Simulated scan of single mutants.
Amino acid sequence: LKTREELERIDTSLQVFLSAEIELADDRGTLECEHLEEMKEVLDFISAAPHCKHVLPRIPKGRDPIEYCHEMLVNAAKNPDIDLILHPWDAPRELLWSLEDLPEGYLREFAEAAAENGKCVEVSNCFSHLWVWRSEGLKESYGLLVKELLRARVKIVVGSDGHSLRGRYVEGYGMTPPTLCDTSWAVQLVKSCGGGDENVGYPRRGLQQGD
């Protein structure tokens, strides 16, 4: 509420939306949020964060972790409470080195689920940073997902994922470098995959409230 009040006091010609990065809890695409209904009243749209490294300890014994994370993404795309899916396949290098290593059809299934359910998907500048858990292969292969999003006509949100100017400690991995509010790599990636202004959009609920 405080942030909403601060935004309303800003004198700007820019259209500013308020959202929150809410963790996905499981392969059903459930949001990890105790006060979701209250959040929906305050936020312009709900953003889901599928951090594969966070769900790894919760995966039942015997389940394929790649399949689990894939189902988490697809079901998040089907969750009516979610408007925007942030940085899909933000995975630690020990789980996924490259999107080329995913089973055939996974990227397309996710993109089609997002399109069918009217979700926006973020292409994040975070993949340009080789943080302590990400691989070079993930950065180099991320265009495979972007191409599937474009093919399915999913509206793309370009984001910086700029959390901290000083870096932060991530348990089990160490310190991350500073993350600046930069989207240049993500913009160039979308363009290199054939995307343009017509492929960029915002969650529908956010547009309805912002207009």
Rank of each mutant, 00 (worst) to 15 (best):
T3A: 08
T3G: 00
R4P: 02
E5K: 15
E5Y: 15
E6L: 08
L7M: 00
R9G: 08
I10H: 08
D11W: 12
T12K: 13
S13K: 14
S13C: 10
L14K: 11
V16N: 09
F17D: 04
S19C: 07
A20K: 15
E21I: 03
E23F: 01
L24M: 12
D27Q: 11
G29C: 05
C33K: 14
E34K: 10
E34V: 05
E38I: 00
E38K: 05
M39P: 01
K40G: 04
V42F: 09
V42A: 06
L43Q: 04
D44L: 03
F45W: 12
F45P: 11
F45M: 08
F45L: 11
F45I: 15
A49V: 13
K53C: 05
L56V: 13
L56C: 03
D64Y: 02
E67V: 07
E67I: 08
Y68G: 00
E71F: 01
V74A: 03
V74Q: 10
N75P: 00
N79S: 07
D81M: 05
D83C: 01
L84W: 09
I85M: 03
I85Q: 07
H87F: 07
P88V: 12
W89M: 01
A91E: 03
A91Q: 03
P92Y: 09
R93H: 12
E94R: 15
L96F: 10
L96H: 12
S98K: 09
E100D: 15
E104F: 14
E109W: 04
F110C: 02
E112M: 05
E112T: 08
E112I: 02
A113D: 04
A115L: 05
E116L: 10
E116P: 02
E116I: 04
N117C: 11
G118L: 05
K119F: 04
V121C: 06
V121K: 12
E122M: 06
C126Y: 02
S128M: 14
W131N: 13
V132N: 12
V132S: 09
W133Y: 12
R134C: 00
S135P: 09
E136K: 14
L138H: 10
L138S: 06
G143F: 12
G143K: 15
K147N: 07
K147P: 01
K147C: 00
R151M: 03
R151G: 00
A152Q: 07
R153S: 13
R153F: 08
V154I: 09
V157A: 11
D161G: 03
D161H: 08
D161T: 05
H163D: 00
R166H: 09
R168E: 14
R168V: 06
R168H: 11
R168N: 13
E171I: 04
G172V: 10
G174V: 14
T176P: 00
P177I: 06
T183C: 14
T183L: 05
T183W: 02
S184F: 10
V187G: 02
Q188I: 07
C193P: 07
D197E: 14
E198T: 07
E198N: 03
N199W: 12
V200W: 09
Y202P: 00
R204Q: 11
R205L: 07
L207P: 01
Q208P: 01
